[in-house]
């Protein structure tokens, strides 16, 4: 068995307890904590007998350990139960909304990486100059701007005052919904359907939300890239390259950046949590019909099974992404082994 294979298998095995603990935490928060889902769903004035009956129906009167095992078994079968408010499987509701969130986060991530890494590399190259200080200041300030407020301000600027970009939703009214029935990823669907008018419409709706998300997270990547680049730029092989007379720009943006990228990649795995949190808030601001909107809508409706399902899916996404990032890291850098 190769070194890499062993690493991958160990890493996958380590993910299992992590997912298990996350699922247990979700269970504890949603089931054991004070706050009774049934009475809050039926409103404060429901008669005792109705509440009892509903509880019995949902299996909430069984011992907590049984409920817990049942909960885990349900997740193993990839079944997240049925909504308490609508006659709808939770899994179905999530599958409908998930592509919107993934599309938003993917575009947000691209913008973050592009802005963050370029600015970080530039700042490291121009260490302790005015440009460097300015970029570092940007890194601190942008990180302190709440993503939802940045979204609102961009809406105000580009949507209301300049009136050049749409401020809500994934498509305009003139685009038919039937175009989007294949994958749910609108960009992909419109390309597959070769409907370029719709594609343009979808992309223009993506501009503000993905920039909002991308800008806020770019601050972290500016700092990360800068710190890593500073280490790399001091390495002997960079000095050697300089001595050989290779173009400075080529050294910085090709040689050094490539080597600084490995630690940045690992950090990307950790940032996925922030990206998800940012996506929830961005979705609220831009009426983006994704997982964040689903989560909040169902909180207001007190639909606990859906609430639970959405949180579980977020937990699984985080665990999977960090697993994938670690594996890529191990492939890229052969020094990473258990």
């Amino acid at each position: 068995m190769g070194n890499l294979t062993r690493y991958v298998i160990t890493r996958i095995l380590l993910t299992i307890p992590m997912v298990f603990i996350l699922l247990s935490i979700v269970f504890v928060v949603l089931r054991i904590m004070p706050g009774d889902p049934v009475s809050s769903m039926l409103g404060g004035h429901a008669p005792e007998s109705v509440i009892e009956q509903k509880k019995e129906e949902l299996g909430l009167n069984r011992p907590i350990a049984i409920q817990y095992l049942d909960y885990l078994w349900q997740i193993c079968r990839l079944d997240l139960g049925e909504s308490m408010v609508f006659k709808q499987r939770v899994t179905k509701a999530i599958i409908e909304k998930l592509p919107a969130t993934i599309e938003l986060t993917a575009f947000g991530m691209i913008i973050t990486l592009f802005l963050g890494i370029l600015m970080g590399a530039y700042a490291a190259d121009k260490r302790r100059s005015a440009q460097d200080n300015l970029i570092r200041l940007y890194g601190i300030v942008i990180f302190c701007i709440p993503v939802y407020w940045l979204g609102l301000m961009l809406q105000l600027g580009f949507g209301v005052w300049l009136d050049i970009l749409p401020i809500a939703g994934r498509t305009g009214p003139r685009v038919l919904a039937s175009t989007f029935e294949k994958t749910g990823f609108y960009v992909l669907d419109t390309i597959l359907a070769k409907d370029f008018f719709a594609l343009g419409d979808v992309l223009i709706h993506l501009v503000l939300p993905s920039f909002t998300l991308g800008l806020v997270l770019s601050g972290i990547f500016v700092r990360l890239t800068r710190a890593n680049m500073l280490d790399v730029l001091r390495a002997d092989y960079i000095v050697a390259a300089e001595a050989r007379g290779i173009q400075h720009r080529k050294i910085v943006y090709k040689y050094a950046l490539k080597n600084a990228f490995i630690p940045i990649l690992t950090m990307m795995g950790l940032q996925i949590a922030l990206l998800m949190a940012g996506a929830i808030l961005t979705e609220t601001t831009f009426s983006w019909p994704g997982m964040g909107r689903l989560l909040l809508e169902r909180i207001y409706l007190r639909d606990y099974p859906t609430l639970q399902g959405v949180i579980i899916v977020f937990a699984l996404i985080v665990a999977t992404v960090s697993l994938i990032v670690d594996i890529i890291y191990a492939i890229v850098d052969p020094r990473v082994r258990y």
Partner: peptide, 24 residues
Amino acid sequence: SLIMDSVYSFPGLILAIAFAAMLG
């Protein structure tokens, strides 16, 4: 440590949302 690492990796906002939703 395992528990803390798991919570750490989870999006804080989502956890806070779940808590806030349950606590009222």
